[in-house]
Amino acid sequence: MNAVLADVRSEALFVSNLQSSQRPTPELIRAAVTATVNRLGESGCAELVAQEFGEHPDCAIGRMRWARSAVRSAFAA
């Protein structure tokens, strides 16, 4: 997976309604990423990520770590 695609997917998962506490399956992660990108677009996802990091940096760091890890696992080739 190239870095730009991984970033877009991670941002989409970050701003989705899916929570790490739900222990989502790879299928749910892929579905959430697709639905969020379709709803907000790539730039919309990036804007919301920036907003969250600005307003809640303490929480955003952990959520982004989870999102990046979950995307790596869910979209592994």
Rank of each mutant, 00 (worst) to 15 (best):
R9M: 10
A50G: 12
R68C: 00
E27I: 12
V4R: 15
A67F: 05
R72M: 05
A60H: 09
R39V: 12
S10D: 02
E11V: 10
Q51A: 09
L18K: 00
M64G: 06
R39I: 00
R39K: 12
S73K: 13
N2E: 15
A74T: 07
A76R: 14
E52G: 04
P24W: 03
D58L: 10
R9G: 01
M64A: 07
S21I: 03
S10F: 09
A60L: 07
A50P: 01
P57C: 05
E52A: 15
V8M: 12
A77W: 11
A32H: 00
H56T: 08
R23Q: 06
A67K: 08
P26H: 08
V8L: 12
P24G: 01
H56N: 05
V37D: 06
I29K: 00
A6G: 01
L18W: 02
A31H: 03
S21M: 07
L28C: 12
A77E: 15
T34Y: 04
A3L: 13
A77F: 15
A76V: 13
A3M: 08
A12W: 05
Q19N: 12
R9C: 00
S21A: 15
D7K: 11
E42G: 13
N38W: 15
R72A: 06
D7I: 13
H56Q: 11
A50I: 06
V4N: 13
A67N: 04
Q19E: 14
P24M: 08
A3Y: 13
A60C: 03
R9T: 12
S21Y: 02
F14G: 02
A50Y: 05
I29A: 02
S20C: 10
T25D: 05
S73Q: 08
A31S: 14
Q22T: 09
R9E: 08
L5H: 14
I61S: 08
R68T: 02
R9S: 07
L48C: 05
S20T: 05
A31E: 06
C45Y: 04
P26Y: 04
F75I: 03
A31L: 04
D58A: 13
V71P: 00
E52R: 14
A46P: 09
